[in-house]
Simulated scan of single mutants.
Amino acid sequence: MPDLQPFENRSADHLRLVLESGQIGIWELELQSGLAVRNGTHDEIFGYDQPLASWSYGQFLDHVVDADRARVDDLQKTAVEESREWSFECQIRTFRGDIRWIRAAGCPLKDAEARIVKLIGHVIDITDSKESQARLRLITSELNHRVRNMLSMIKSLVRMSARGATDISQFARSLEGRVGALARTHQLLIAHSPDSMKPSAILKAELSAFRGYEGRFDIAVSDEAALSASASQGLSLIFHELVTNAVRYGALSVESGRVEVRIARSDGAVEVSWKECGGPAVSPDRTEGFGSVLIARALAADGTSELNFAPSGVECHIVLDVA
């Protein structure tokens, strides 16, 4: 190739650089004896700290995991019979006992009588790439699941908000606030930090939408745990309804009112206690509105929530299931 002519005198140096920087193992297999010569990187890929004195096709097959061995061997035989490239991916068990992924390719070499006498090729470790692909598939699957759940929840919010609204502006305000609560929780979920999915973090995120009221909360956490995505979304909606109602009608609607929140962990669950005090007296004859219905249903199978309109202030006891 004309473009390679300037490198002909240094071709061995360039090849060595490519092999070392790319961590590429190369091999040359003699078909009659089954013995192969190879570089040091080849043996390192198969888990050997020092190059072995000899290497055979049988040794290679012994490293290939049981589930892949017959397929790889059949591909090699077909490549020789049809005089074409031998290319495959498979898992191997290294000398150290680790399971790794490799990608290998080889091509036949013929003698003066056009008989295939050797295969030459290369092998690389692709374990990191395979693990990245698996993580990407997992993340994509989780994202699809979360988006479906989010859309279902928004659909329910639209339907239920419309049912309780008296005019378009009220409907828009209530829906915007509830969807905003979901959006704030989504930001916590994509942070990929277990701490961001704990009840205290979800509450603080919700309070960030109610500037000026954070100092009127007494929050005590004795122990807590990270929640699932669906439980986090449900809890954010509950907190949004509780804070909204407290600001409009409850303890936070007057200067003297405060809210106590206690978070503690029990066997297989995290309990959240919400208690308002110092606000207007609560009427025992309150009718159940959409907010109350949402609080009761938001957690679905992830826990329970019980709302109590005590005369001294609204109380809510939330139990969240955790693994």
Score class of each variant (00 low, 15 high):
residue 156 S to Y: 07
residue 206 E to I: 12
residue 150 M to E: 10
residue 57 Y to N: 07
residue 73 D to R: 11
residue 290 F to K: 01
residue 119 L to I: 15
residue 131 E to W: 09
residue 261 V to T: 03
residue 179 V to T: 09
residue 109 L to P: 00
residue 112 A to M: 11
residue 167 D to Q: 09
residue 41 T to K: 09
residue 260 E to L: 11
residue 10 R to A: 05
residue 293 V to M: 11
residue 230 S to T: 15
residue 40 G to F: 00
residue 170 Q to L: 09
residue 162 A to T: 12
residue 322 V to F: 03
residue 81 E to V: 02
residue 183 A to R: 15
residue 113 E to D: 15
residue 162 A to N: 10
residue 310 A to Q: 08
residue 218 D to R: 14
residue 24 I to G: 01
residue 144 N to Q: 14
residue 236 S to T: 06
residue 167 D to L: 08
residue 147 V to S: 08
residue 222 S to F: 04
residue 237 L to F: 03
residue 250 G to L: 05
residue 294 L to W: 02
residue 200 S to A: 12
residue 165 A to E: 08
residue 107 C to L: 13
residue 205 A to P: 04
residue 230 S to M: 08
residue 219 I to C: 06
residue 78 T to V: 12
residue 169 S to N: 13
residue 118 K to W: 15
residue 54 S to L: 05
residue 236 S to I: 03
residue 251 A to G: 02
residue 132 S to C: 08
residue 5 Q to L: 14
residue 283 S to M: 08
residue 183 A to N: 11
residue 199 P to C: 05
residue 216 R to P: 01
residue 180 G to W: 04
residue 323 A to I: 03
residue 79 A to E: 07
residue 140 T to H: 11
residue 280 P to G: 05
residue 175 L to Y: 06
residue 68 D to A: 04
residue 165 A to D: 07
residue 244 T to A: 11
residue 216 R to N: 06
residue 75 L to W: 00
residue 269 A to P: 00
residue 187 Q to H: 14
residue 180 G to A: 12
residue 235 L to Y: 04
residue 94 T to M: 07
residue 265 R to T: 08
residue 170 Q to C: 08
residue 79 A to G: 05
residue 170 Q to I: 10
residue 177 G to W: 02
residue 114 A to Y: 07
residue 140 T to Y: 06
residue 76 Q to P: 00
residue 161 S to A: 14
residue 99 I to E: 08
residue 33 S to H: 05
